[in-house]
Design a protein around this nucleic acid. Sequence first.
DNA 1: CTGAATTAGTTGATTAATTCAACCAATTAC
DNA 2: GTAATTGGTTGAATTAATCAACTAATTCAG
Lengths: 147, 147
Amino acid sequence: MKTVIDKFRDFNRYYTRILGLLDDHLLNSPYSLVEARILYEIHQQGPVSASQILSEVNMDKGYLSKVLKQFAKSRLISKQRSGEDARVSLISLTAKGLKSFHALNAASHEQIEQLISNLNKQQQHQLIAHMEGIRKLLSVPAPPKDS
Amino acid sequence: MKTVIDKFRDFNRYYTRILGLLDDHLLNSPYSLVEARILYEIHQQGPVSASQILSEVNMDKGYLSKVLKQFAKSRLISKQRSGEDARVSLISLTAKGLKSFHALNAASHEQIEQLISNLNKQQQHQLIAHMEGIRKLLSVPAPPKDS
DNA sequence: CTGAATTAGTTGATTAATTCAACCAATTAC
DNA sequence: GTAATTGGTTGAATTAATCAACTAATTCAG
């Protein structure tokens, strides 16, 4: 009999594949998965510092710096020095960057739409309920020590 | 209000991160995520051909060939020509490969254990139920055309 | 049967992705 | 004020991944 942990790992393999499929299709765009994710974060968080992005995305800061440099070079983002702390640059999407983001977004949206196209409304909501259930459970805090 | 698709994508970002965390920790091993996955498939499927692995894992066949070559060089796997079809090699783990696999496996197991350590039995089963629910829903087939 | 097309897998060349440590400049802590 | 820390950049190096060309074995079509 499979243990809870085995089943968890089964799901991880399964979902890795789902995510992989989505990426592949998304890759009619010139952006890699992480680039897309970075664009997303910049879009989401308005003017944002590199370290704020890092705290969301979990990657090497040197690498992020290079990706951002590329983005700046191709005019997807603009940087503005923070008044509060002159070390940090606040990054925003340019109009061009926003456009790229929207294109990516639409492609990704379409992929998911495809994926759930066979589900009726009720099933779709069940699906989301499962996802939210997982998140909730995986963020259950440790019980307080009764010291 | 967020749509079903938006929520689905939220979950994808969330779960990407979960998977990323697991990988990172797994990477006290000398193996990359895909290498680990390949070892897993060889272990799982007994003597297996490269193309069978490809059908599970979804990667470039040239790249897989190189990874397998490395594995062979470091004596993790052995190849044996298939009697049925002389083009295919059937791949198995050597004793050394099995040992490496077990080490990886134990590390991965431990990670998950950690992740669910705050959950009681009932919550753990809920978690698995959610995962299985997702799998089931995402494999709902298209309705037959009533032609 | 015979030649054309397909399939399994390999290889070399090339590009893309990622890491790493050293580093500068600004800020905070002592 | 000086030391330590933080935000970010850079160059060098390594690793990962792609791609097309290729060999050899197999299948398919006539």
